[in-house]
Amino acid sequence: MITLWLFILIGAVIAFFWFGRQIAEAAQQHAVGQAEKLNVQLLSVACVKRRLAVLSNGRLGIKSQFAFEFSSDQQSAYTGTMHLENLRLKKMDIPPHRMG
């Protein structure tokens, strides 16, 4: 019986990691799209926070926060944040920046 619970736990950890990678790829795509819309250069995307939570639709899922850096004039960098629920972008905060 202990072996069964161990396999279930290992499977859950692997599934969480796998889905986390899908979320990171979705965040990268959202950041690239926003950079193209703003006509800025995307520098990096990094996960700040990821947790299991109840989503706005009432279901259990993963809430994530990502930071992305971009440059509008190739001299200064700005950091924005993205809030995702599973693969869906819920909110994006973009700081004031120079238009170059």
Rank of each mutant, 00 (worst) to 15 (best):
Ile62Ala: 07
Asp73Lys: 10
Ser71Gly: 00
Ile2Lys: 15
Leu9Arg: 15
Gly80Asn: 04
Arg98Gln: 15
Ala46Asn: 15
Ala12Tyr: 15
Glu36Ile: 09
Thr79Gln: 08
Gly11Val: 02
Ala35Ser: 07
Ala27Ser: 07
Ile10Cys: 00
Phe7Met: 15
Ala27Glu: 07
Lys49Val: 09
His97Ser: 05
Gln41Leu: 06
Asp73Cys: 01
Arg21Tyr: 12
Gln34Asn: 06
Ile2Val: 13
Met99Ile: 11
Leu42Tyr: 05
Met99Tyr: 11
Glu85Asn: 00
Leu55His: 07
Ala31Met: 01
Glu69His: 04
Lys37Trp: 13
Val54Ser: 04
Ile94Val: 15
Ser76Met: 08
Gln29His: 06
Gln41Pro: 03
Thr3Ser: 14
Leu42Ile: 04
Lys37Ser: 12
Pro96Arg: 06
Leu52Ala: 12
Arg88Ser: 14
Val54Cys: 03
Phe7Lys: 15
Ile10Thr: 02
Ile2Tyr: 13
Gly100Met: 07
Ile62Gly: 06
Met82Lys: 01
Leu60Pro: 03
Ala46Gln: 15
Lys49Thr: 13
Trp5Pro: 06
Ala67Glu: 12
Asn57Gly: 04
Ala31Thr: 04
Gly80Gln: 03
Leu9Ser: 14
Gln34Ile: 08
His97Lys: 05
Gly58Thr: 02
Phe17Tyr: 15
Leu43Asn: 04
Trp18Ser: 12
His97Ala: 05
Val32Leu: 09
Ala27Gly: 10
Ile14Ala: 11
Val32Tyr: 06
Ser56Tyr: 02
Ala53Glu: 07
Arg98Val: 15
Lys91Trp: 14
Val32Glu: 09
Ile14Phe: 10
Ile8Asn: 14
Gly33Asn: 08
Leu89Phe: 06
Ile62Trp: 00
Ser64Glu: 09
Leu60Ile: 15
Gln34Leu: 08
Ala27Asn: 06
Phe19Lys: 14
Glu36Cys: 09
Ser71Leu: 00
